[in-house]
Design a protein around this nucleic acid. Structure first.
Length: 940
DNA sequence: ACGCTGGAATCATGG
DNA sequence: GTCCATGATTCCAGC
């Protein structure tokens, strides 16, 4: 599993890798990697772009655009790793392992630490926060302290690190298993994959290791707490090991109270959060990974860990000597390893009843690590053939196993070269997720009935691939696994698509076969959405997201394509946002489509909005926000009440405040049904009056054409609302390069326009518009893809081969380069607005969202949040203050220009923002300031 | 009996 | 501290 990933070490990376993403996704580590040191070759190949910026995002390869924005953010962490251990690096998603600074002596999991994981951080710039370690926490109080000093991190007792939290998000078993109070708690334990037929022998092996991995992750964040140790250690056994439910619940009300409030407000330094960590929910955490099925008691568990450690060491050695052959199994005891590896080294899992065996023939580790080896492939295939397909089982296509698979929170492009991963049929905008306490609410459906369809275009090989699916965020921030929702595997007669689950970090991933015989097309009728209780997640160590009103998700699909040259192309595409709450779905107005995306400043044209929950008295408000989130213009559009329908609203485009507009300006509008019932921001672009109007509508069309041919099409399908808008279509310079460099002028304009935050903003994170992500991508080949997809990112190329250095953005090195943190990224988004957002951002943490960044609970962006800012702790969901450092380079200037140009009176309407919003803003502001001051890096 | 829904009661949180 | 609105969760009931 996940752990494995980090095990893999290529000889190349002598140093940096230590931090491998696997180690700590969220940890600073990744960031720390000296950009050029480690992956140099890779970078060279991949990131030629890497501009002058001290930290460049490797990602840029795929998308030129990417690089730029990030630069700002990037810090130039100088980190010298004295240790050698470089095991960790696999950028694997799985790596749930939290980045952690290992103390020489002990590993988080309690196992003896590898040799010299001593890391010295020299000038540490703010972005990273070192909270992950206990010490860090301590230091949090003295944020600055870290800054410049050389820090040697040591891990305290492993136990302490153990993150109690592992929810059982993954459980595919229906929630029913869990009931009320303890539901989460129990459910966690109860999730016995054992019960499920799916369990395969190999899982067990995974368990321990995996648990370890996770633990590690959490550890980072974990504070040494006495209590912590408990449940987790003995996952399978009795959840209650140290802490009984009662003890936990003791005071708890029947329902777990949501930590949010207090957490957000009071726990800037994260102190308060610790408490939560003890919550039964967490501790018990029977995350699938830990798989209860294997009864692992502390005793058993520990031993395993040791083995793990040992093996890890061996693996590390091997890796160093073998030139990068990644040993997936490293962390795993040898025996286990084989099995594990067979499946999906990367993840832990739950396998489908038939599925598991498949393919699993035991392959030499090398196989996984080095896809290139022909014989391996063969062997692999051979196994496949041998295994008779079980009903619903699918021969698991050769899983792409690479130590360096990009973490789930990495932004990837949807197309690269000839390959294009597209969502042919988008899911409905609403899907009521089910709680663990409920039965399944079925698979996500398509708007027109049926189910979403995903297809990989341009793939001509005969070898089947694995399509990964997970539930991602749908807010402004970078696409990443959603902390409060998990994909839920649906099975039954009505399900035609085989699938199996694996856990990557804290994220459940559904693996679906993409078969050549099916045209590399998959009907996603096997995926439902599970809602995790906010309180369970928020209490997780390191979790900084809040669940309240964070009910939008996107289905994220990924595919990893091994290429003859040994590289692996990773593509990702995200669906349109899906509202998962019952209430919101019933009450909030939703705009799925708008007939017009852009129009001259004169306005006057009728625009038809298609969506749901429109009311006769619904209002449509156009808003323009400054980078700092302030409304600089707001006006209500006339709604044609006569043509009202609950699903259609006809409005007259209002004239823009500045008739002298010289360049396209993006504003937003939303539908309002009442005080707190507003739709997400929809984007609209005002064009200079004298500019020839390019036909933008119907929306549906344009995307496909503009974007990468095929790719776009998928997205377009239904609602374009999000996507469409973004594209400034005609206005946008085709020039891809524009986005690339820091200057990305084209993007800037857009940025400027864009409102940093969504209406609902902040805390709520509602603003999903995927659109934001895509636009800038236009750059190279990939542009298209990226454009369309919210997820836009850089194409990732991994070198599977020995060196294994992956060009993957994910690679630690790269990550180091990037350093972007979620928070930042958000800003970036804003800045690059449409462009891709930080594609490059490769937060180290694989599962950013879920992952606890450890110490810094407060930090909003869990894993990524900058250290210092983090300390401030706050969620910065979106940022209103786009003006933040990141954006400044681009957008701000523009704004200024415009403003200056526009002499028109600006109507500043201070919208009564929700308090929480304000709160967030303040926080953001603080953070931003902190970042700017703290991180020189931001200044490019 | 089970899975999937739709609806709604009940509990929490925040203003 | 109480009341109200809004959200989150849990329950129920029907198909």
């Amino acid at each position: 599993m996940q752990d494995n990933s980090y095990l893999s070490v290529s000889s190349k990376f002598t140093f940096g890798p230590l931090f491998s993403s696997s180690v700590g996704k969220e940890t600073l580590e990744l960031h720390l990697f000296p950009p050029y040191t480690t992956m140099k070759s890779a970078e060279e190949e991949a990131f030629s772009y890497a501009p002058n910026v001290s930290l460049t995002l490797p990602l840029s390869m795929g998308n030129p655009c990417l690089s730029t924005p990030y630069h700002n953010l990037q810090s130039s962490p100088v980190i010298s790793v004295s240790s050698n251990h470089q095991l960790g690096y696999g950028g694997h998603e799985d790596n749930g392992a939290p980045g952690y600074y290992l103390s020489p002596s002990i590993r988080p999991n309690g196992a003896p630490a590898l040799e010299s994981p001593r890391i010295e951080i020299t000038p540490y710039t703010g972005l990273h926060h070192g909270n992950q370690f206990p010490e860090d926490e301590i230091e949090e109080s003295m944020p600055n302290k870290r800054g410049n000093s050389i820090v040697t991190l040591t891990l305290p007792n492993a136990d302490n690190y153990r993150d109690p939290s592992c929810l059982s998000p993954a459980s595919s078993l229906s929630s029913r298993s869990c009931n009320s109070e303890a539901s989460s708690y129990e459910s966690n334990f109860s999730y016995n994959y054992d019960n499920s037929p799916q369990n395969s022998p190999w899982q067990s092996p995974c368990v321990s290791p995996k648990g370890t991995a996770q633990d590690e992750r959490f550890h980072q964040g974990l504070v040494p707490c006495p209590l912590v140790a408990s449940p987790r250690h003995s996952p399978s056994t009795s959840p209650r090991t140290s802490i009984t439910e009662e003890s936990w619940t003791g005071n708890r009300s029947p329902r777990p109270s949501s930590p949010c409030g207090s957490k957000r407000k009071y726990s800037f330094n994260g102190v308060p959060c610790r408490h939560p960590s003890y919550s039964p929910n967490h501790s018990p955490t029977p995350s699938p990974q830990n798989s209860p099925r294997v009864s692992v008691t502390d005793e058993t568990w520990l031993p395993n860990t040791n083995q793990y450690t040992n093996s890890a060491i061996v693996a590390a050695i091997n890796a160093l000597t073998t030139d990068g052959v990644t040993d997936l199994g490293e962390g795993i005891p040898v025996k286990s390893r084989k099995t594990m590896m067979d499946h999906s080294p990367t993840m832990s899992l739950k396998v489908e009843p038939g599925g598991e065996d498949l393919g699993s023939g035991e392959l030499p580790q090398e196989d996984f690590s080095n896809p290139r080896l022909p014989f391996k492939k063969e062997s692999f295939c051979g196994d496949f053939l041998v295994v008779p397909p079980a009903p619903y089982s699918w021969n698991k296509p050769k899983p792409y196993i690479s130590p360096s698979l990009p973490a789930l929170d990495w932004q990837l492009p949807s197309c690269s070269g000839a390959y294009s991963l597209q969502i042919e049929v988008q899911p409905k905008s609403h899907h009521r997720a089910h709680y663990e306490t409920e039965g399944s609410r079925g698979a996500v459906k398509a708007l027109a009935g049926g189910h979403p369809v995903v297809q990989l275009h341009g793939y001509m090989e005969s070898e089947p691939l694995t399509l990964q699916l997970f539930i991602g965020t749908a807010d402004d921030r970078l696409l990443r696994p959603h902390a409060f929702y998990q994909v839920h595997r649906i099975t039954g007669k009505t399900v035609s698509t085989a699938s199996h689950e694996v856990m990557l970090s804290n994220t459940k991933v559904l693996e679906i076969p993409l078969l050549p015989e099916n045209n590399m097309r998959a009907i996603i009728d096997c995926a439902g959405i599970l809602k995790l209780r906010n309180s369970d997640i928020e209490l997780r160590k390191g979790e900084t997201d809040i669940g309240r009103k964070n009910t939008r998700v996107r289905m994220v699909f990924r595919v990893h394509i091994n290429q003859p040259n040994g590289r692996t192309v990773s593509l990702q595409v995200a669906s349109n946002p899906i509202e998962c709450s019952q209430r919101s779905a019933q009450e909030l107005p939703l705009v799925e489509k708008q007939s017009v995306d852009s129009y001259p400043v004169t306005g006057g044209k009728k625009m038809v909005l298609s969506g749901h929950n429109f009311l006769p008295d619904s209002k449509v408000v156009f808003v323009e926000k400054a980078p700092d989130g302030h409304h600089i213009w707001e006006t209500e559009a006339k709604v044609d009440k006569d043509s009202f329908k609950s699903t259609t609203l006809v409005v007259e485009i209002p004239s823009y405040r500045n008739k002298g507009l010289t360049s396209p300006t993006q504003v937003n509008f939303y539908v309002c049904n009442g005080k707190r019932k507003r739709s997400q921001y929809q984007r609209f672009t005002y064009l200079p009056a004298n500019v020839p109007i390019i036909k933008t509508e119907p929306n549906d069309d344009y995307e496909s054409t503009q974007l990468c041919g095929p790719v776009a099409s998928g997205l377009n399908a239904h609602s374009k609302s999000y996507y469409n808008q973004q594209v400034l279509t005609s206005m946008i310079p085709p020039d891809p390069g524009s986005c690339l460099v820091a200057s990305f002028p084209s993007c800037q304009q857009r940025h400027m326009v864009m409102p940093p935050s969504s209406p609902s903003s902040s805390p709520k994170l509602h603003d999903l518009s995927p659109s934001a992500y895509s636009k800038c991508l236009s750059g190279g080949q990939n542009q298209l893809a990226s454009l369309q997809q919210p997820t836009a990112g850089v194409a990732t190329i991994q070198e599977v081969p020995s060196r294994s250095v992956v060009v993957h953005p994910s690679s630690p090195d790269q990550s180091s380069l990037i350093m972007l943190q979620p928070q930042v990224s958000q800003h970036l988004n804003g800045s690059c607005s449409h462009g891709f957002q930080q594609p490059t951002l490769c937060p180290n943490s694989p599962s950013s969202s879920p992952v606890p960044s450890a110490a810094q609970e407060p930090s909003y962006a869990q894993a990524y949040s900058p250290p210092q800012p983090v300390a401030m702790g706050q969620p910065l969901p979106k940022t209103q203050r786009n003006g933040s450092p990141t954006e400044q380079p681009g957008p701000l200037p523009l704004l200024q220009e415009e403003s200056s140009q526009h002499s028109l009176p600006v109507t500043v309407k201070q919208e009564p923002q929700d308090l929480d919003q304000m709160y967030l803003d303040d926080v953001n502001w603080l953070i931003i300031n902190g970042l700017t001051t703290i991180n020189p890096v931001y200044h490019l």
